[in-house]
Computed example of a mutant assay.
Amino acid sequence: MKFKSVFDIIGPIMIGPSSSHTAGAARIGRVARSLFEREPKWIKISFYGSFANTYKGHGTDIAIVGGLLDYDTDDERIIQAIEIAKQKGIEVTFLIEDAIMDHPNTARIQMGDERGELELVGISIGGGKIEIIELNGFQLKLSGNHPALLIAHNDRFGTIAKVSNVLAKYEINIGHMEVSRKEEGMQALMTIEVDQNVEDFLLRELEGVENVLKVTKIID
């Protein structure tokens, strides 16, 4: 494994004790909150592998709830995150799963309210870094280290090219892009990590592209 800097080893500024089990968990929760775009009414968190075995001792439970409350890794409110969620009337449930996952630090988050639901699977890969590997049944690879666009669209010829052309028009450089679909010709999901933040007017233009259903921005 190669590290780009010492911070890949020791992790980000954070409420401890573990970059993988605490900071990574908080970042998984915060990405889920960003995608849901509002505070949920209920949250169900399933832990697998090492997360399942050590989540209480390493504060994985409070960290992931803190992220879901939109707290950053160094926010001292994380320590009281579960109690704060209860005070807000958010129902939080933790489940310990026996299933063997590809990565030992895996969490599945299900959350929702009267307006809708979201399901996300994330892994903490060390040093506070994460990957989101599943969203509402779509397989993807989202690092959370760069600004990103998630574009839900109908699986139709030319849609990817049209989206790419809009980004090229505004000189938005694509660092990573992939497309996932559950079934040919049905709904698909583009995951696009970019090198700079995307302004809201560009999001509206992307939403106007034929066959695009929804555009969600994640800011690093």
Rank of each mutant, 00 (worst) to 15 (best):
N211L: 04
I100F: 00
K214E: 13
A32M: 07
S50A: 15
N173G: 03
L142F: 08
K169W: 13
R108P: 12
G126L: 11
I219K: 13
H153N: 11
I82W: 03
E184A: 15
V121G: 06
L149I: 08
L140Y: 08
N197T: 12
A81G: 06
V166E: 01
I125R: 12
N197C: 09
I130E: 01
L167G: 03
I125T: 14
R38P: 14
T93N: 15
V209E: 05
G185E: 06
N197G: 08
A188Y: 10
I125Q: 07
V215R: 01
T159Q: 01
A23C: 09
I82G: 09
I133M: 07
R33F: 09
A52W: 01
K41I: 07
P17C: 04
F36K: 00
D74T: 00
G112A: 02
A81D: 05
A63Y: 12
W42S: 00
L135Y: 10
E114G: 01
A25K: 07
A168S: 13
I174Y: 12
L203G: 14
D113Y: 14
Q87N: 15
G29L: 08
H176N: 11
L149W: 00
V212Q: 05
E119T: 06
K56Q: 13
T159K: 08
L149C: 03
I79S: 01
S34C: 14
E117R: 15
E39H: 12
F51M: 09
M1W: 14
E207C: 04
V209Q: 00
K44D: 02
P147E: 06
I123A: 10
R181Y: 10
I172L: 06
I62Q: 02
G175D: 11
E207M: 14
G67S: 09
L95V: 13
E91Y: 07
I45N: 05
V212Y: 05
E205W: 01
N53P: 02
D155V: 08
K182Y: 05
G59M: 12
A161K: 15
N145H: 12
H58G: 15
K41M: 01
K4N: 14
V166G: 01
G175N: 14
P17Y: 05
G57S: 15
D113P: 01
M1R: 11
I218S: 03
G49T: 04
S143I: 04
S180E: 02
V121T: 07
N105G: 12
L167W: 09
T191L: 07
D113H: 12
I43E: 03
D70S: 11
W42Q: 05
A81P: 10
L206K: 08
E37Y: 09
A107K: 11
V31K: 03
